[in-house]
Design a protein around this nucleic acid. Structure first.
Length: 715
DNA sequence: ATAGGGTTAG
């Protein structure tokens, strides 16, 4: 989803750490400031979910939200915490009571529903057989009802429940439920509704569940915690989060207190809505009344913080577990591992895994999938291979997800042969035939490696064996063919994708855009542009605009903003990089500088410049070759200006291109080095750090002075 | 699935 692109200050309360400060930045053609460390902001998270409660606040209490209802409780149970408190994690002291003897009002019931075992029925065997017969009956209502005529004995409460629980489709459960109702021989207890609702939930029939709920309310059968938690989790399963919240609030309004099951279910609903503050609020309110959360709650919290990439949140969960004395189980470890990965902490994931092994908890497929994925994304090939060996050694469980994750990991760290072996094994296996994910991983590997022949062979193989080509496989292929300058192949693959109805996304457009820049000067440029025209006509129109020297900067700025606003966040920088390359190919250097300026202005290059008193650093690691050259030129112009007016300069200048730790990474450092030579700039390749270029102030100043006659420098 | 809550691949 595209986040809005904005030129105003944006402080999104849901992202606690992300503030963007706009400082005035003057811009004149040809005279670019490189001090663009501040940026106009593009919010990274769509501002969607944070305001839903304020909407309800104005309504009367008939429709008031849960938080309004709970706020009097909050005032009495929580001290010195405001809901706007940004530092809820770790720094907040545990709640302190003003009056510890005063009874705190509860937000949840500590008592769970007691399970009543079924009483013995002498007709159990007969009814089990009868249930079997009903399951085997035809699916039509008539057949089912005919079968019901053969009921062996009069229906008791226990036997009715037995049958309700034994029917295998929700349709039959519902028919049987309605039949009991019409028989009128048994009082309709809550448990009948609950069992039926559970069957409906299995079939994701939220509408039917709601009908039943209204029906029971109408006839005066009280819904209990089991009813509500079933309704809420069904809504959740059907992605009807508003409905889940609605039913939870309804429950409060009827005066029924949720127990811990319902409570953790609703915590999960708010977590899935991304309402982190609300979840913490509810969690702490319940904690304050003495509730002892269990592993399920911690799994919900861990998942939520993982989705938010919030490392502090994950630490908060670990700390809470420790202080409450709850030992994590396998599910919690799996969730927290996954969360550590999302928060970008592979090292902590590794220690968490070792901690779990030391405790004697055996990893399952999900554990290993999470960890292999993390090592792959972090490019920790040694850890990934070590873990892979341990998996084989210990015969830890493997499944299809794990196989495909291993393939993806191989793609991430550049293990071509290992991937080929695994892929071959999968083909030879009975139950783990490669699917579209597996093929995509292999296409990714061959694509990154630039192995056109093997990639195309896989492509043909997929068509033959009927494995669907998905958007990512398609993008990998196009990228691979483009880099190999096989533009006819690009067009062919693109057309196949369109024919098969692959939905074209922004990444594919970015890929095509890079092919456009590569095809410059060849007879194929028009054909590639025609593909892009189909995928994203606005982008093609923008290219036409930027390559026309007559277009004013104001127009470029406006259209740039439009293009980037509607593009997915992750493709904005690649788009800008490619557009700069296209301009430089056509020797439209000035336009290239304008685009780099705009990219910087809109925060697409947030860490391009780093300055300390001793060192100025240009970090071009996320730039394309053309964009990196443009950035270097701009840097040098600024230095020239500063030298001219005899401003202060640091001792050291450093340009970083990255060493290309990725096995497949194409050498930006090589092209950057040759451009430095072309400019005859006094940067030297650092000996200890590959991909770093260093220059001293002395050398740079004399270089600047030699480029400009001394008279020109005097002011 | 045996009346209710949590975790796996771009």
């Amino acid at each position: 989803m595209a986040a809005p692109l904005s030129t105003t200050i944006s402080i999104d309360p849901s992202t606690r750490t992300r503030f963007t400060i706009v400082t005035p930045l003057t811009f004149t053609h040809r005279n670019f400031s490189i001090h663009c460390t501040a940026s106009e902001s593009i919010p990274q998270t769509p501002p969607t979910s944070t305001t839903s409660n304020t909407k309800n606040k104005k309504n009367n209490n008939k429709n008031s939200s849960l938080f309004d209802q709970l706020s009097p409780l909050a005032n009495t149970t929580l001290s010195n915490t405001t809901s706007k408190d940004q530092s809820y994690v770790l720094s907040k002291p545990k709640s302190t009571w003003v009056n510890p003897t005063k009874q705190k009002r509860s937000v949840l019931s500590q008592q769970r529903h007691k399970r009543v075992p079924y009483s013995y029925s002498p007709q159990l065997r007969d009814f089990k057989l009868f249930a079997q017969k009903l399951n085997d009956s035809g699916d039509s209502e008539a057949e089912f009802l005919a079968c019901l005529g053969e009921i062996p004995h009069e229906l008791t409460r226990e036997n009715a429940l037995l049958i309700l629980n034994s029917l295998k489709t929700w349709q039959k459960t519902l028919l049987f439920f309605n039949w009991i109702r019409t028989q009128n021989s048994l009082p309709m207890e809550t448990i009948f509704y609950n069992v039926t609702m559970k069957a409906l939930r299995f079939g994701r029939q939220f509408g039917k569940i709601e009908e039943l709920a209204h029906q029971m309310i109408d006839e005066g059968t009280q819904p209990d915690n089991i009813t509500y938690s079933t309704i809420i989790t069904c809504a959740k399963k059907c992605n009807l989060f508003d409905k889940a919240v609605q039913w939870f609030e309804r429950m409060y309004k009827t005066g029924l207190m949720p127990d811990e099951v319902t409570y953790s279910a609703i915590l999960d609903v708010y977590a899935k809505l991304g309402k982190v503050e609300e979840v913490i609020n509810l969690y702490e309110k319940a904690r304050a009344t003495g509730w002892k959360p269990d592993n399920i709650t911690f799994s919900v919290l861990g998942k939520m913080f993982g989705e938010a990439g919030d490392y502090d949140g994950i630490r908060y969960v670990l700390q809470e577990m420790k202080s409450i004395g709850v030992q994590a189980n396998l599910v919690v470890y799996n969730t927290l591992l996954e969360a550590m990965g999302k928060a970008g902490k592979p090292g902590f994931a590794r220690s968490l895994f070792e901690e779990m092994i030391d405790l004697g908890i055996s990893p399952d497929e999900k554990t290993l999938t999470a960890l292999i994925k993390i090592y792959g994304k972090a490019r920790w090939s040694r850890d990934a291979l070590e873990l892979w060996d341990r998996m084989k050694e210990n015969r830890w469980p493997m499944d299809f997800f794990l196989y495909n994750t291993l393939l993806n990991m191989c793609a991430d760290v550049g293990l071509v042969e290992e991937a080929e072996t695994l892929f071959r094994d999968m083909k030879q296996s009975e139950h783990r035939k490669p699917d579209s994910w597996s093929y995509t991983a292999m296409l990714n590997i061959y694509g990154s490696e630039g192995n056109v022949d093997k990639a195309m062979k896989l492509f043909e193989e997929m068509s033959k064996s009927g494995v669907e080509l998905n958007i990512m496989g398609c993008t990998c292929l196009i990228q691979c063919l483009g880099k190999a300058m096989e533009f006819d192949g690009v067009v062919r693959v693109f057309n196949v994708a369109v024919e098969r109805g692959v939905k074209l996304d922004d990444r594919l457009c970015g890929c095509l855009l890079s092919v456009v820049s590569l095809s410059h000067g060849s007879k194929h440029e028009e054909n590639i542009l025609a593909c892009l025209q189909q995928a994203n006509p606005k982008l093609v129109a923008f290219i036409q605009l930027i390559v026309d020297e007559e277009t004013s900067f104001e127009t470029i700025k406006e259209e740039f903003k439009n293009i980037m606003s509607s593009a997915a966040v992750e493709v904005r920088r690649p788009f800008c990089n490619c557009l700069i390359d296209i301009c430089r190919n056509k020797e439209l250097q000035e336009r290239a500088h304008e685009l780099l300026y705009l990219g910087t202005l809109y925060g697409l290059y947030p860490s391009l410049h780093n300055k300390t008193a001793n060192e100025w650093r240009l970090d071009v690691r996320s730039l394309s070759v053309g964009a990196a050259e443009t950035a270097l030129e701009e840097w040098m112009w600024t230095l020239t200006k500063i030298v001219r007016r005899e401003g202060t300069l640091p001792e050291l200048f450093l340009a970083q291109t990255g060493s290309g730790t990725h096995k497949f990474a194409q050498g930006l450092n090589i092209s950057f080095a040759s451009y430095l030579r072309k400019l005859d700039a006094p940067f030297r390749q650092s000996e200890e750090k590959v991909g770093s270029f260093i220059a001293t102030r002395k050398d740079l100043v004399s270089w600047v002075q030699s480029k400009f006659p001394s008279g020109a420098i005097a002011t």
